[in-house]
Design a protein around this nucleic acid. Structure first.
Lengths: 195, 195
DNA sequence: GTCTATAAGCAGATAGAC
DNA sequence: GTCTATCTGCTTATAGAC
């Protein structure tokens, strides 16, 4: 296996995506060159263009893939139960899903400004879909008397910001297990929307 | 005043900082060139180096200045009153201080990874000082029975993440005044740390 | 599908004239 | 203090050989 040229399409594509994800998350999209990605993968820079039209498409594809996964996984949670049960499920899901893929999360929050306008709008719309799902839970809870919320739009953004913040400090080898982290945050979220 | 060369040291320095702040916030540190900053200011690129040793120093100076201002303004709040009063003061201060300088806030959160290791450690230490101030309030409130908090370290990070999130959507021309936003968040923060 | 070579241009930073 | 000119090296992306 010492050959340095030939056909590897089945593994090179995913390896490019993994390398780009890692490097973009660590150094930022603008700070990473196609040559760096190629070096990480073990090919020459020109070979990358067999898998992506250009650097921008590579970024967009990573972000799009992440948002699609997020929405699909969230949809699989279902809508059963009381607003309180649904909010707890959302809280625990958000924390664990985001903790599982810190690099994709980081890119999807930090590199919005690196997207061309068309691509930006697509990602923004997906992000809004996710926020709307939480807002629906909060509104249902308000209507049924489960929650007391002054402004459901703000509460939605406040809860998501609080939960996403876990990614800035959580490490699986840290003081608390993910289950404990979920419990602490669920307590705080629950109290913040009830009297 | 049609001259295009000469001495302008008293105004050029601040103008460079303002242009860099604006451009770094909008496009990111790595995506902005010294030539772009110079064009924005109305000088040639070489002239920038009369005011900054290099691009990295310019970024660090902006972030350092922001953190120093933040800590000085927070110190001026004082430590009077009950933990609840102090937490309310912190909440309102954090929101209004950050709403007043969205570009510096954005840079200080997004460009940490663009700092060289030495500079990163300095900014990180200042950020930790600020977090510690909030954690002290929470711990005092726990000790006195004002607050019920499972994990004060996590609660500190959760509250700061929630409050800083305001900057991602707040616009002074928006639906709510800053005072109303502060009130909504104070309600949520207060409830999240009390039973 | 990957390679090498290259096009065309921009990057950070400096030197020396004024 | 600002200018112009320049050094050196890197950038994205493409062309054509294998």
């Amino acid at each position: 296996m010492a050959r340095t040229t030939g056909s590897h399409s089945e593994i090179t594509g995913p390896r490019i995506r993994e390398a780009a994800l890692r490097l973009f998350a660590r150094h930022g999209y603008a700070a990473v060159s196609m040559r760096q990605i190629a070096t990480e993968v073990g090919v020459q820079a020109g070979a990358l263009y067999n898998y992506t039209a250009d650097k921008q498409s590579l970024l967009f594809s990573l972000m799009r893939g992440h948002m699609d996964e997020l929405l699909a996984a969230h949809a699989a949670l279902g809508q059963d139960g009381s607003p309180t049960a649904r909010l707890e499920r959302f809280t625990r899901f958000h924390i664990s899903f985001h903790a599982d893929r810190p690099q994709a999360v980081f890119i999807s929050y930090m590199e919005l400004r690196s997207l061309e306008p068309n691509n930006f709008q697509i990602i923004e719309a997906l992000r809004r879909d996710y926020e709307d799902a939480l807002e629906s839970i909060l509104r249902d809870g308000m209507a049924g008397g489960d929650f007391t919320i002054a402004d459901p739009k703000i509460a939605t953004l406040a809860v998501i910001a609080m939960l996403t913040g876990v990614n800035t400090w959580y490490r699986s080898a840290g003081r608390l297990s993910l289950e404990e982290v979920e419990q602490v945050y669920w307590d705080m979220v629950h109290r913040s929307v009830t009297e």
